[in-house]
């Protein structure tokens, strides 16, 4: 087995870590108990992936709890506030569709990332399934749920283009990945009576820099919450 490219493990690990944290924020706040469990379970899967990926780069705890904002390499999409339930589902739809296609491709390789991807792709299948079902229910539900879901899809659209920027160390046909992603999203949104957003998928000054360590404003506050315990009480254990 070949060594995994550290830059790629960091980018994918950070995506999983930060989305896991955002999903964890729903604990105690989800609309129904079943959703509370579902979101926590998805967060747990992502945390597991993050632990494996970050451990390929260095000490997982140091990387998660002691890095400064500019040293993270996640997509700006995953750090956005959880918003209302529609925002969370829209992000899950965009991200799990991307991760599912990417992991499927990475699973073909011969590095430690491939090993993780071949395991995680099956978990992400369930994440995508969950997001697609909710997209259908909210889009084809009431006038209120339809409108909120459309708003959420539109608001997060500009963070989706970044996902298809090449990641150093990964051999992936990014144009094909993007086309497959767009097809899948288009099919689901049509079925859900929603409209595929038409705005730019990047281009605002801040959208599109997460992989280079340029994060958006909510990221700092999120990091403060995520890291504060470990920084205030170094070496704390349960």
């Amino acid at each position: 087995m070949n060594p995994a490219p550290a830059s790629a493990a960091l980018a994918l690990g950070d995506d999983a870590l930060l989305l896991s944290h955002r999903l964890g924020e729903w604990a105690g706040h989800a609309p129904v108990l079943e959703e509370e469990l579902a979101l926590a379970n998805i967060a747990l899967d992502l945390l597991g992936q993050a632990r494996v990926l970050l451990s390929l780069v260095g000490d997982e705890d140091e990387l998660a709890y002691l890095r400064e904002e500019r040293a993270f390499r996640n997509l700006q999409l995953v750090e956005q506030p959880r918003g209302d339930f529609a925002h969370t589902i829209a992000r899950q739809l965009y991200f799990s569709s991307y991760q599912r296609l990417l992991y499927e491709e990475l699973a073909q390789g011969d590095t430690a990332i491939a090993e993780l991807a071949s395991k995680a792709v099956k978990e992400v299948d369930y994440h995508r399934d969950h997001a697609e079902h909710w997209t259908l229910r909210l889009g084809d539900g009431t006038a209120e749920s339809h409108q909120r879901m459309q708003q959420a899809l539109d608001a997060l659209w500009r963070y989706t283009g970044e996902a298809f920027e090449p990641i150093e160390g990964l051999t992936v046909n990014w144009a094909t990945l993007r086309a497959r992603w767009t097809d899948r999203i288009t099919t689901v949104l049509r079925q859900a009576t929603l409209t595929v957003p038409s705005g730019p998928q990047s281009g605002s000054w801040a959208a599109g820099g997460g992989r280079q360590g340029v994060q958006t404003e909510p990221f700092g506050r999120m990091l403060a919450e995520m890291q504060h315990l470990h920084r205030s009480h170094p070496g704390a254990t349960w």
Partner: peptide
């Protein structure tokens, strides 16, 4: 099916 995720990740409700 009530929920694809249950008390643990490996179970559905």
């Amino acid at each position: 099916l009530l929920s694809r995720f249950s008390s643990t990740a490996c179970k559905a409700l």
